[in-house]
Design a protein around this nucleic acid. Sequence first.
DNA 1: GCGTGAATGTAATGTTGTATCCTGACCCGA
DNA 2: TCGGGTCAGGATACAACATTACATTCACGC
Lengths: 156, 156
Amino acid sequence: MPNHDHQMHEGDSLREAARGRLEETGERWTGMRAAVFDALAGFDRPASAYDIAEAVSKSQERRVAANSVYRILDLFVGANLARRVESANAYVANQHPDCLHDCIFLICDSCGQAVHLDDDKVSGGIRDAAAGAGFSASRPVIEVRGTCEDCGDADS
Amino acid sequence: MPNHDHQMHEGDSLREAARGRLEETGERWTGMRAAVFDALAGFDRPASAYDIAEAVSKSQERRVAANSVYRILDLFVGANLARRVESANAYVANQHPDCLHDCIFLICDSCGQAVHLDDDKVSGGIRDAAAGAGFSASRPVIEVRGTCEDCGDADS
DNA sequence: GCGTGAATGTAATGTTGTATCCTGACCCGA
DNA sequence: TCGGGTCAGGATACAACATTACATTCACGC
């Protein structure tokens, strides 16, 4: 079970939380950044920068290049608005940008969905193991590939 | 501390262990596979498929294409002779191919070295956390980016 | 208005990973 | 010895992911 309550967000509430968080870091919430955030949050699974570029191109009715998207995604990751899923070369919106965690992703190899867990006990164990090897951890990457409940139920 | 002893290998011993393990799976230990394994084991840090292709090209004195290397690396990963480091898009030789673990990589962002830990307690915790969310884990990816002891000592 | 720096656009290029089809070595049975 | 099957690997092309350099535009203080 989680060891504290999060302010969870969705839809407009998430957008506003993201905007607030980004502005706290001294960055601007521009139209382009809003469009990228909306596109990212609109996916129900991890989205690649190119997926997002395509979605934004559609919503803006003009071509948006990948590198603009990369710039903004890097900014988002730095500000905790988004996370990178390393094993999928993709990104997800962070549902609670105000709250910093080492997080765990459960990624279904069948449907592509990614669930985000926060378990400070597990991540603490990893940080301890790293520290025990004389290693100073800055960014744990904890991802589990496998099969989600829905896909496991019925072997389609 | 590790919770059991491994048969650790290096040099020729590692090569022989790898060969034995691969042949146990019903695959052949060909010259090309040996060359790829030697190249991989010769790197002191995670190596990309293209790094390995280049090294093998040199040792064979002919051009070896990346896709051949990928095929062989996939085979190695499947047979537990090598591991993929997801956060670096790279591969490392497994020092004890006879022994299957969820493993933890500590990757130094400064020098690029990767240390391989086996800690069944930590990985068990992750599998438990996944199971608690109804998720059937097949392949945990546990990597920690940070700074190793050597690079942290003196801030060059 | 106008200069300045931040944000974004444009284009090219580099890196990583896959797909497809083909060749050559080897084995095996007729 | 001939044919056919299998499989490792080669060649090529291409798809997907990511970065770089430089030009242009925009917001804001003055």
